[in-house]
């Protein structure tokens, strides 16, 4: 399976300063989102992983989209990621 990941709102800074990523898992057809998120934390972030994951879910203040819709519409962290999905991690902004 292949998933596309987008980071915005400053989160990209944790991920090698890149907004777009593609992850391929050759031996998998699906993957629980919780597993993917923990995998991202453990293998893709060099520093300050606590800014991404807290209590084995995405930390407060980050909105997650599954194929451009709020992840709550699809089960939140319990969602099962499928081949071709696009996941967006959006850090909420407070400035103005």
């Amino acid at each position: 399976m292949k998933v596309k990941i987008e980071m915005t709102g400053g989160l990209e800074i944790l991920f090698k300063n890149q907004k777009n990523h593609t992850y391929e898992f050759k031996d998998r057809d699906t993957m629980p989102l919780r597993e993917l998120v923990v995998w991202m934390r453990d293998t893709q972030i060099q520093e300050r992983p606590e800014l991404f994951v807290e209590d084995s879910t995405v930390r407060p203040g980050i909105l997650v989209l599954i194929n451009d819709a709020d992840w709550e519409l699809d089960g939140g962290i319990e969602y099962i990621v499928e081949d071709g999905d696009t996941l967006s991690f959006i850090s909420t902004l407070h400035g103005g």
Binding site: R59, P60, G61, S91, T92, H94, G95, G96
Partner: peptide, 19 residues
Amino acid sequence: IFPTPPPADTVTKCSDGGV
């Protein structure tokens, strides 16, 4: 959407981050 506020040290402000 955001029932829990973000940890204070994760919040970047305009005067730091610039806009």
